[in-house]
Design a protein around this nucleic acid. Structure first.
Lengths: 182, 182
DNA sequence: AATTTCATGTAATTAGTTACATGATTAT
DNA sequence: ATAATCATGTAACTAATTACATGAAATT
């Protein structure tokens, strides 16, 4: 059974612990968001499909009068997750507008490449700040894979920001400031 | 006028030089592919829309009996490209299955995280080899933005592969080999 | 009292891939 | 002769976002 992109993240999230669609979405936004996003428009229909396929099962768990369904993996769902995890990865796609603008920067004339690099750097510094905030809010999970990936995200964005700074510096030797000034 | 994702790469490619849809596609595959892809199913319909909007114009340039249309930017198209390039980037999306598998690796048990890291490393080594081949085939363009981005791609994939190797080594002190052995 | 968060869902739209179809030209 | 490349395009399908809609509970 071929898993859809959103099925992959849902099954994985439910392997961490049973949870509702809303909780899946909010945890995605604090964790996999920077390399694997998911919206409500994907999550809720996919939860129904996975339940129909017998990979997950939902249980009513309302808070007062507000209805709520918590999903957990079935044995078949756990098996499907394991099967997927053991195969080498295939999907590796990016949509990086900052890089595209640097790539075409020469169309603006010789002086403009530097500013495109600084714009790209700025975007990664913003991502970095968001990930650092997540790191600060977290509680003892040093030995988990989820924390390892958070560290990856932080170091990854640092590396890119530094690469941009270095490339900008090589174009013009003035110091690079943190703020955009235009 | 809001440019579609594919319009951005088409206008940029035509700023490098006039070319056909086929040539746009093959150059994308050798250059922006690793951070901004485009398929024929996107390119040909978008070329028609951009021509209808007056941003590009096509000229018949057949090779013998095989018909062929070469597109170039109009002044309005050049303006649209410049307007887009000068605004800070917004789109920054990834679909990174290797990272997602590392993220959920604990579901397989404690020993499996290492293999997921090595799988992810392998994928980036493959990207790296493809980009190095492009670099070897290229001719004097050291001072262009397109070459800068190629260098970025190479160093970026190197950095990720090394990060994976380092993380795998910290989990188990045996040496990391280039080949998958399972 | 008002705002934010929790909670679930759908409809419309946009984006994108993959497979198919056709045919000329060039290289082996 | 055959295969690879050049060249253009569409149809079917999959994926994904965005906006909308509704309403309860918790917080300020």
């Amino acid at each position: 059974m071929e898993l859809s992109p959103t099925a992959k993240v849902i099954l994985g999230m439910l392997s961490l612990s049973p949870r509702s669609g809303y909780e899946i979405k909010s945890f995605v936004d604090k964790s996999t968001r920077f390399f694997w996003a998911a919206s409500y428009g994907q999550i809720y229909p996919e939860l129904r499909k996975l339940e129909a396929a017998g990979l997950i099962e939902g249980e009513d768990a309302p808070t007062g009068d507000r209805k709520r369904t918590v999903f957990r993996l079935t044995p078949a769902g756990e098996q499907a997750l394991h099967d997927w995890l053991r195969v080498p990865p295939e999907v590796l796609e990016m949509r990086h507008e900052g890089m595209l603008k640097v790539f075409f920067a020469d169309a603006l004339g010789p002086g403009e490449r530097r500013q495109r690099l600084l714009d790209m750097r700025e975007q990664h510094l913003e991502k970095l700040a968001a990930l650092r905030a997540v790191e600060a809010a977290r509680t003892k999970d040093e030995d988990t894979s989820t924390y390892l990936i958070l560290r990856f995200g932080i170091e990854f964005n640092e590396w890119i920001a530094e690469w941009c700074e270095r490339a900008a510096r090589e174009l013009a030797p003035e110091p690079v400031n943190a703020e955009r000034s235009r």
